Lab assay of single mutants.
Amino acid sequence: MTEYKLVVVGAGGVGKSALTIQLIQNHFVDEYDPTIEDSYRKQVVIDGETCLLDILDTAGQEEYSAMRDQYMRTGEGFLCVFAINNTKSFEDIHHYREQIKRVKDSEDVPMVLVGNKCDLPSRTVDTKQAQDLARSYGIPFIETSAKTRQGVDDAFYTLVREIRKHKEKMSKDGKKKKKKSKTKCVIM
């Protein structure tokens, strides 16, 4: 069974824990209790493949930012979460993405942009803004509501699919490099 290491990042209060708990335990946590770091595991079937999701729910508070490099190193894919009623959390996505790329030393890291709290009427981040940002990053965008469960499975499952595509691409690139290195030079 394939294991996928997913990391949920975003500013404090955007609903990272609520999304994760909704996926794992099928219930909505409405009281806000700032996370330092929590880890969850769940076995699911995605596109006919049974897999184990190892999900790291991270601290959004700035005082825990020193811990970010460590979990970013171990993560295979990242859910970059903002709240649709919090423009600052949307603007912060850029910083999370840049930090992930720096730590992973790669421009090509599996990510999904997630606009959470889409059940709320007080939207300050337009869907088109988020779609445009995701398009500019070359990553999928999904709106979710941890409260109603809308888009929750889709967000995590899409990230797994992005990781699969990335692994497939990397193995193809690896095979191309191996083929090239088999060419021999004969000096007579």
Rank of each mutant, 00 (worst) to 15 (best):
A83S: 13
V14T: 12
E107P: 04
V14Q: 13
L53M: 09
G10C: 01
V81H: 14
A59C: 15
N116C: 15
D47Q: 05
L52N: 04
T35A: 01
S17D: 00
G77I: 04
T20M: 06
T144K: 01
G75V: 08
S181V: 13
D119T: 08
D33T: 05
R41N: 04
C185Y: 06
M111K: 03
R102L: 07
C80N: 04
A66K: 01
R73Y: 10
M170D: 07
L6G: 03
P34H: 00
R73T: 10
K42Q: 11
N85I: 12
F90I: 06
I100T: 06
Q70E: 02
I187M: 15
L79E: 03
D126Y: 09
G151L: 13
C80H: 10
L53I: 14
D108T: 04
C118I: 13
R135V: 12
F156M: 10
L113G: 02
K88H: 09
A155P: 07
A66F: 09
S39V: 06
T183R: 06
C118H: 12
V29F: 03
C80K: 01
C80Q: 05
D33P: 01
K128G: 10
S106A: 11
K179E: 11
G60E: 03
V29T: 09
R41H: 03
P110L: 04
R102S: 05
M170W: 15
E37F: 00
Q61A: 13
G15I: 09
K101N: 06
Q129K: 14
L133D: 10
V114C: 06
V125L: 08
Y64V: 15
R135C: 10
P121C: 11
T20G: 13
L19P: 01
T58A: 06
T35H: 00
G60V: 07
C51T: 06
A130E: 10
G77C: 14
L159I: 08
I84P: 14
N26F: 15
G60P: 01
E162L: 08
K128R: 10
K176M: 11
T158S: 08
L23P: 00
Y40H: 04
Q129M: 10
D108R: 08
Y4K: 05
K5T: 13
D47F: 04
F141A: 01
E3D: 10
V81D: 06
C51K: 02
K169T: 03
E98W: 01
L52F: 06
K182E: 09
V45W: 03
E62Y: 04
P110Y: 01
Q99H: 14
R164L: 06
I46N: 06
D30Q: 04
V7Q: 01
L52G: 04
T58P: 02
M67I: 09
V114E: 03
M111E: 03
R41D: 02
K101Q: 08
Q22V: 01
V103G: 06
V114F: 05
R135L: 11
A66T: 12
M111Y: 02
G77R: 01
I21L: 06
T2Y: 11
I55H: 00
G10D: 04
A66W: 04
I142N: 06
C51G: 09
N116H: 14
Y96H: 09
M67L: 04
Q25F: 09
H27S: 07
F82Q: 02
S106H: 10
S106Q: 14
Y64T: 15
D126P: 09
G174C: 05
I84V: 12
S106W: 13
D30T: 09
K169A: 06
D119A: 12
Y4N: 04
I46S: 04
K172Q: 11
G10F: 03
V7K: 00
T74W: 15
T144F: 02
F28V: 00
V109W: 12
D126R: 07
G12V: 04
R161P: 14
Y32E: 00
A130R: 09
H166E: 06
F82W: 11
D132N: 09
E76Q: 05
E62F: 09
I24F: 05
V44Y: 02
A130S: 08
F78A: 01
F141G: 06
Y71C: 15
P110N: 05
I84F: 13
I187Q: 15
Q131N: 10
Q43V: 02
Y64A: 15
H27I: 11
D105A: 08
K176V: 10
